[in-house]
Design a protein around this nucleic acid. Structure first.
Length: 469
RNA sequence: GGCGACAUAGCCAAGUGGUAAGGCGUGGGUCUGCAACACCCUGAUGCGUCAGUUCAAAUCUGACUGUCGCCUCCA
């Protein structure tokens, strides 16, 4: 399996730290509002990465935090006149609902920054002791970037150039910093803000320290994969490396994975531009499986553009897969042929080749777009070779294969059994009778009526089928 | 200014040296009372432009054009 590593800027063969195990840490959202569709991309990407590792038989430990103390949360709390934890608790719950609706597996651990303050104080203390951090007059603790010779190795930044670029910041504030690139580990509280006691001052942690601490606590000093959006490369992940490696003296993460952005009108989504969608907005119009399928239809390192047209295309494409799997399921239950037919052996070979294509795509830095193409080809194969004249063994094989592969992508194809609805069944029976009587006007009227109820009918050889839209 | 990414049919999108996957959409057809589903057919003599390397380039090299991102909170 090859993974593109931001640090080395190349695809590298994946070798776990410990045989058969994978430790993954993904930076989670700051919970000051409902998550937006941009937040959803890393969630879906890394959930799929995780699912593939599980499929491969790895013992995966997946940790993703919620940042629940932050300026934006405090602002939202002030605006609503409530405590910050009211805001963060609320949006963590909402975020979990969205994740569940996108079929994102809950992390093995979802640590909260506010519950890990002791660990942060310990790490900051250690950094100060080792000369990697210092306390300013007002009690702010800064990381001393000059003390870490490798600072900039992830983002490939030249520190001298960075210095000149940051000159303006130096003038505008934080005058106590030794160097403009030094960053905050601990800062004093302001009135009305949540705070914790420390030997430096009453205050709260900087943003970067939490991930170093939580990663260390739940996964150890060294992890296999650290992931997040590409905007986190600098400074967030660069700073995490500085903090963690200065403490442990060991390499922090072996592979740095970063997803590209989800854009609107080919530009980064921004509130000010007015083009801003929450996952909840999309859920009002589509099953979030569609959003998931849409996101995975492009490679995770490519920017992806969001639009209504593309969502429609994704919806239709996903529908084709779902319909195909559904036909297989019906077929394998209805067919009278048990044993595999001679020609089906060849079809199964084709299916196996497509299974290998799927795996090869995923092995190559999680090329989900290519993997999906293998699924479409499997659906086509099933549609052309399945049906009442195919054997139960063949269709069961195809069904299981498609369910397994789509499950790796987190796409649910096993449709839940609809509860029998007497009213709908009665209308369908009435329409069937009308059709028998050649009263097509009445039959169509009933079909139209059901459509208004959100029920779409399909006349098949095995009888009338219906589904909700 | 520094660093980086991308440019493939109407749209989306794989392919990174051997002669263009897949999907959506369009048009035609088969099936069907009609519709839907499904199936068949339909699509780039060409992969931003111009040079170069090579027996061979969408794929490598250079230049150019265009788009976007990071360098500040940001998924």
């Amino acid at each position: 399996m090859k993974i593109y590593d931001t640090m080395s800027r190349s695809k590298r063969e994946f070798i776990p730290l410990e045989e058969g195990k994978v430790k993954i840490y993904v930076c989670g959202p700051t919970v000051y509002n409902l998550i937006h569709i941009g937040n959803a991309r890393p969630m879906l990407v890394f959930d799929t990465v995780r699912r593939y590792f599980i499929y491969k038989g790895y013992d995966v430990c997946f940790v993703s935090n919620f940042t629940d103390v932050d300026d934006k949360i405090i602002q939202a709390a002030i605006a609503e006149g409530v405590d910050a934890d009211v805001i963060s608790t609320r949006y963590i719950e909402e975020c979990k609902k969205d994740m569940a609706a996108m079929n994102v597996l809950p992390a093995d651990v979802h640590p909260l920054a506010t519950k890990e303050i002791d660990g942060m104080i310990d790490m900051i203390t250690e950094l100060i002791q080792k000369g990697h951090a210092y306390v300013a007059k007002d009690g702010t603790v800064y990381f001393r970037t000059d003390s870490f010779a490798e600072y900039g190795k992830l983002s490939h930044k030249n520190m001298d150039e960075l210095q000149s670029g940051l000159r303006e910041l130096k003038v505008s504030g934080e005058a106590d910093k030794e160097s403009p690139s030094d960053f905050v580990l601990w800062k004093p509280k302001k009135d009305g803000e949540p705070y914790w006691d420390s030997v430096w001052c009453k205050g709260r942690p900087g943003w970067h320290i939490e991930c170093s601490v939580m990663s260390k606590k739940y996964l150890g000093e060294q992890i296999d994969i650290h992931g997040g959006g590409e905007d986190l490369v600098f400074p967030h992940h660069e700073n995490e490396i500085a903090q963690s490696e200065c403490c442990s003296g060991k390499s922090f993460a072996n592979y740095w994975m970063h997803n590209a952005f989800l854009n609107i009108d080919n530009k980064k989504m921004s509130k000010s531009a007015g083009d801003f969608f929450t996952v909840r907005d999309i859920a009002g119009k589509y099953d979030l499986q569609v959003l998931r399928f849409f996101m995975l239809s492009a490679h995770y390192r490519s920017p992806i553009n969001f639009s209504a047209e593309l969502m429609e295309a994704a919806k239709n494409g996903l529908e084709r897969i779902l319909t195909g799997v559904s036909k297989l399921k019906d077929g394998m239950q209805a067919t009278q042929l048990a044993a595999l037919l001679e020609e089906e052996k060849a079809y199964m070979q084709e299916a196996k080749a497509l299974h290998l294509k799927f795996e090869a795509a995923m092995e190559d830095d999680f090329n989900t777009a290519d993997a999906i193409s293998a699924i479409f080809e499997l659906v086509k194969l099933a549609n052309t070779t399945g049906g009442l004249r195919a054997s139960k063994e063949y269709m069961t094989y195809m069904y299981k294969l498609l369910v397994d592969l789509t499950d790796i992508l987190g796409i649910i194809t096993k449709k839940e059994e609809e509860k029998p609805d007497a009213r709908i069944e009665a209308l369908i029976a009435e329409r069937t009778q009308a059709k028998k009587d050649k009263d097509f006007g009445k039959a169509d009227a009933i079909r139209e009526r059901l459509k208004e109820m959100g029920i779409v009918l399909e006349d098949t050889r095995e009888g009338v089928k219906w589904k909700r839209i």
